[in-house]
Simulated scan of single mutants.
Amino acid sequence: MRLDVQPWGATLAELVDAARAAEAAGAGVAWTPELHRSAPVVAAAIAAGTQTIGVGTGIALAFARSAMLTALTALDLDELSGGRFRLGLGTGVARLNQDWHGADFEKPVPRLRDTVAIIRAVEAGGDPIAHEGVRSIAVRGWRRPYPAARPQIPIYLAAVGPAMLRLTAAIADGWISHELCPPDDLRTRIRPVLTGSRKLDIVASACCSVDADPAIARRRAANVVGFYASVRSYADMFGAAGFGPVTTAANAALRAGRPADDLGDLIPDEMVDAYTIAGTPAHCAARITEYDGLADAIKLSPPSYGLPADQVREAQKSLLELVGSRP
């Protein structure tokens, strides 16, 4: 199983240095999220600053940009990286699209299907370029005059619900999981939908907090779980696992004015253990093996929510040492 990373940096320069360290440690792909930074811009910085590691958006928001602009960005990134780029797309939730980006969120499944179809049409070139659906495109008199690095760029979709998982299985080259993806959920709910006649690159994700003191490792990871525990969209998932009272407390704390990334004190150790990989190097290495046979890769990210930069740096250093120690 491939070990991928989601590098962190307080500056872009530091982030690129972290990607280089991941490359030296033997990581397969450096994925760039889209929350506090632009995923394509960070991917471009990593592509320019590395030589061999794969580079992917993990994930870029599919509806905050036009499908054609997303296609052109992907083509440029693939050229810049020498054919190392992977386009990871996700819908995001309704509030993020509508309130943060002024983007419509109607019919997300057919809209994402159309987005991928338009990207493929632009990538294929030709004149005219046309697609009709929930989202359409009609381009005449335009042709990209530059050679593509590859005939086709791998597209990964972030899917959580059953309809989006079925869409991923039907049209994507890969799947990239939510940050909280326990092995049992992958085994019982996700793989049965994704595993079919088409071969997908299945990428699980996990916050991985490594420290010689397991208590420190857990507490660093707790804010990640607390962030999601405060969001109503995840209440059913946590409730089914027996953590309903925790999500109620976290949501109440958020409404009372507590920062969403500083709720770790409300999260018990057993909940951290259920949704992250946290502990000593030996413990974390053993937890990673639980994904063998279930995923083609696991994307590991250091804990960063609500932590001072020096603690994130220390956590990332320990994580990359773990990646480098894997046979």
Rank of each mutant, 00 (worst) to 15 (best):
D4P: 09
T11F: 04
E14D: 15
V16S: 11
V16M: 06
V16N: 03
A18P: 01
G28A: 14
V29Y: 12
A30D: 12
T32N: 15
R37M: 04
R37A: 04
A39E: 00
A45M: 05
I46K: 05
T50Y: 09
Q51E: 15
I53D: 04
G54T: 13
V55H: 08
V55M: 04
I59M: 14
I59F: 06
A60L: 09
F63E: 06
F63G: 01
A64I: 12
A64V: 15
A67P: 15
M68A: 14
T73Q: 15
D76P: 01
L77G: 04
E79M: 09
L80A: 01
S81M: 02
R84T: 02
L87V: 11
G90W: 08
T91A: 15
L96Y: 12
N97P: 02
D99E: 14
H101E: 06
A103F: 07
F105P: 04
L112N: 04
V116A: 05
A124G: 11
G133C: 07
V134I: 02
V134W: 00
R135H: 08
R135V: 15
S136Y: 11
I137H: 10
A138D: 09
G141C: 11
R143I: 11
R144L: 15
G161K: 10
T168C: 13
T168N: 10
A172D: 12
D173I: 08
E179N: 11
D184T: 04
D184M: 03
I190F: 02
P192L: 13
V193Y: 06
I202H: 05
A206M: 09
C207P: 02
S209D: 06
S209M: 08
P214F: 12
I216V: 15
V224P: 01
S230Y: 08
V231K: 07
R232N: 09
S233M: 08
S233A: 15
F238K: 00
A240M: 11
A240P: 02
G242L: 00
V246Q: 01
T247P: 01
A249V: 03
R255V: 14
A256P: 00
G257A: 01
P259S: 07
A260G: 02
A260I: 13
D261V: 06
M271A: 00
A274F: 00
T276Q: 07
P281V: 08
I288M: 09
D292A: 15
P303R: 10
Y305I: 02
L307Y: 07
L307S: 09
L307D: 07
P308Y: 07
K317I: 02
S318C: 13
L320E: 03
E321D: 13
L322T: 06
L322S: 05
V323Y: 00
V323C: 03
P327L: 11
